[in-house]
Design a binder for these strands. Sequence first.
RNA 1: GGCGCUAUCGUCUAAGGGUUAGGACGGAGCCCUCUCAAGGCUCUAAUAGGGGUUCGAAUCCCCUUAGCGCUACCA
Length: 479
Amino acid sequence: MVRVRFAPSPTGYLHIGSARTFIFNWLFARKQKGTMILRIDDTDVERNTQASLDSIFDGLNWLGLGWDEFYRQSERGELYAKAAWAIFDKDLAYRDFTPMSAGGEDKSGDAKAAWLCNPGMRELSRAESDRRANAGEPFVLRFRVPREPERTITFTDLVYGEQSKSTADIEDFALLRSNGGVTYHHASCVDDADLRISHIVRGQDHLSNTFKHILIFEALGVEAPRFAHLPLLTAPDGAKLSKRKHGPVVSVTTYRDAGFLPQSYINFLCLLGWNPKDNREKMSIDELVEAFTFDGVNRANAVVNFSEEDPIDPKALWLNSQHIYALSVPELAAAIAPVFTAAGYQFDEAKLLKITPLIQERIKTLNDAVGAADFFFVDELAPYDPAELTPQKGDAAMALRVLEAGRTALETAEFNHDGLDSVLRAQAAALGVKAGQMFQPIRVAVCGRKVAPPLFETLEVLGRETCLKRIDQAVLKLK
RNA sequence: GGCGCUAUCGUCUAAGGGUUAGGACGGAGCCCUCUCAAGGCUCUAAUAGGGGUUCGAAUCCCCUUAGCGCUACCA
């Protein structure tokens, strides 16, 4: 039975790299008909914030994938302490009474022995250790990494393949802190064991930590889960993404607020470091579940291609437009309705359903809908330059003739595609102008700009009355 | 510094001994066309460097370089 977990620590907003880790876990769980667990790793009481927890749920809820089980480490404290002392009782851990300030600084570098463990502490007799602890001396509980003889720890990562590291290169890491708190490594492993996690799918930043984790699982007397590490997401300069340095691009909610469809953002994140091997790009959630394997995961870090001018990766934008195009009209209408409402426009569903297909292939984000369709909603068009009314290779006089003839024609025309098409083309012929020269002044008159959806459908949705009124206003502008 | 991981177009990636090194985004151009899109076609651009192994390396091995990660009583 496959059981995977996503274990964020609430010390910041939901990072897009974390979101991707969640997604890969979820995809694997669904593909394997397994269980997806959300576990909040909040063992660092100093750095946890409620705002951060809220932001994680915010982001996860927007993605909309969900999870099957939920846990919080802060509620499972006894478990970790119990497990830690069990390890101590097996003599696989020892008390380190070194004061917190000492040792830490120049451990890096020269003296390797000093880096592996604090002098004297590893060898402390049990009796001496107990005596000092009973005397109230603070200590951290350290794992006794087996070193005489040294051992090579190995495992097969589902993404990175065979991995090995000598215990001579693993320092005696902490399990319990001097304040009684538990460390990440320990809590994480105890929980993974307790929750019977079958596969740990996480960022590659934990690849080297895995050797420590395997040691802990061993000490716990359980079989270690399988591991799959994911390449990291970086900024264009190769640096890891950070809010302070790169701003809102690192937060999932930024994409939600920019008008992304969650399924397209999920699709985009999946393509960063994974691919289905068959050149598919735009994929639905179901297709992703069906296609997902760890074999398709790449090993090199992936760059999120944003810049200061454009905080959105162009490929994400393109994918979003593809997903928007894949939506049915009612689906898209439902998605853009809140955008229009937020812009302060009044409308009914019937009207929205008529407008939606006109802008569907013209918007890359949901937010683009306002700019693409605003003229359908306003009573009065925003002021525009009358020069815009002048058609290609024509002049203001031609614009005037076209508008007046067009107005007359529209008074009696049938307001549907075919009716408008034939009537306006006939007018163009009668005036001796090209169809485009006929359409453009009318388009500008009714839309207030040159770039707009196809003319006949636009006129139809606007209705005869509005069209005639706006043409009259355009004629006035020209005179 | 030590240990580990990685290295194909600007970006995301395919090709896991034999290909004109493929696709996508972006950019450029053409077609289509009532504008804008969408769509179609074409072009642009890559195997970090050096050694091996082999009849033959993007692919396997070694070295160099570069980047990233870990090296906390953070996660």
